[in-house]
Amino acid sequence: MRIPSLPFDLLASEGSVWTATSAGIEGAAPAGTDLFVDPSGDSGVAAETLLNAHTLLGTPPEGDFTLAAEVTPDFRATFDAGVLLAWVDDTNWAKLCFERSPAGAVMIVSVVTRGVSDDANGFIVDAPEARLRLARVGKVLAFHAHDGADWRFVRAFTLPRVATELSVGFEVQSPTGDGCRASFANIAFERRTVVDLRNGD
């Protein structure tokens, strides 16, 4: 799939459904879709989880960049989410989610996986959409979410080979529900260096 604002093509995971819209793209994930490796070891492994993921990924140009999109999931069940995804291989990846919590709130959530997943809640969003951003600065990745005025820092981390073998893109998930649709609008890619990852500048 080709998006005019991106300087690289995107490839959908097997069986996933993505469509172009006037504002960007939309994904429709069926029930039981997720990308998560339980750190307890009680459920799933990365390879199996990948086969169950609903993703759209491409390889960005070399160097520093940001990828941002306005994400609007339909939020019908717990853990329904629209996601920006950073992918190296099936054991090293990370996602920035706009997700419905078990309490029914919609919030920013991040997951960093190096063999198993490290899951962290961010902040609650009082709106049906959220603007999310992924940045690469050298060997470091950072997640930010916009609060309407400024970019708010969510997480900074690294993954193996992140400077040379990174793919980026989108995911939709519905691990506990009957399915989830999510739109990704105003998709923007910039070849730039975020000077201060902590404040998103």
Rank of each mutant, 00 (worst) to 15 (best):
M1S: 06
R2W: 06
D9W: 06
L11A: 15
A12F: 02
V17G: 03
T21H: 07
T21Y: 04
A23I: 11
E26P: 06
E26S: 12
A28G: 09
A28T: 13
A29K: 03
A31R: 10
A31L: 11
F36I: 10
D38S: 10
S40R: 12
G41Q: 05
G44S: 11
V45Q: 12
A46I: 07
A53Q: 02
H54D: 13
L56M: 09
G58I: 06
G58F: 00
T59D: 08
T59E: 09
T59W: 01
P60C: 04
E62M: 14
E62L: 12
F65W: 05
F65C: 07
F65G: 01
L67F: 02
L67W: 01
A68Y: 03
A68K: 00
A69Q: 01
A69H: 00
A69M: 06
E70M: 14
E70C: 10
E70N: 12
P73Y: 03
F79Q: 11
D80Y: 03
A81E: 05
A81D: 02
V83D: 04
V83W: 00
L85D: 01
W87M: 07
V88Y: 04
V88Q: 01
D89N: 04
N92F: 08
N92Q: 08
W93R: 01
A94P: 05
C97G: 02
C97T: 10
C97N: 13
S101N: 15
P102D: 15
P102N: 14
A103F: 13
V106S: 10
M107N: 10
V109Q: 07
V109S: 05
T113G: 04
T113W: 06
T113N: 02
R114W: 11
G115E: 06
G115P: 06
G122M: 09
F123Q: 10
I124H: 11
V125E: 05
E129R: 12
E129P: 04
A130F: 03
A135L: 07
V137M: 09
V137K: 05
V137N: 02
V140I: 15
L141D: 00
L141R: 03
F143D: 01
D147T: 08
D147F: 13
D147R: 05
A149R: 13
A149Q: 13
A149W: 14
R152N: 10
F153A: 04
R155T: 03
A156D: 07
A156E: 14
T158F: 14
L159D: 00
L159S: 02
R161I: 13
V162M: 09
A163K: 05
T164H: 07
E165M: 05
E165W: 08
L166H: 00
L166T: 05
G169N: 05
E171C: 13
Q173V: 14
T176C: 11
T176P: 00
G177W: 00
D178P: 10
G179L: 10
C180G: 01
A182V: 09
S183V: 08
A185S: 15
A185T: 11
R191W: 02
R192A: 12
T193K: 09
L197K: 02
R198L: 11
G200L: 07
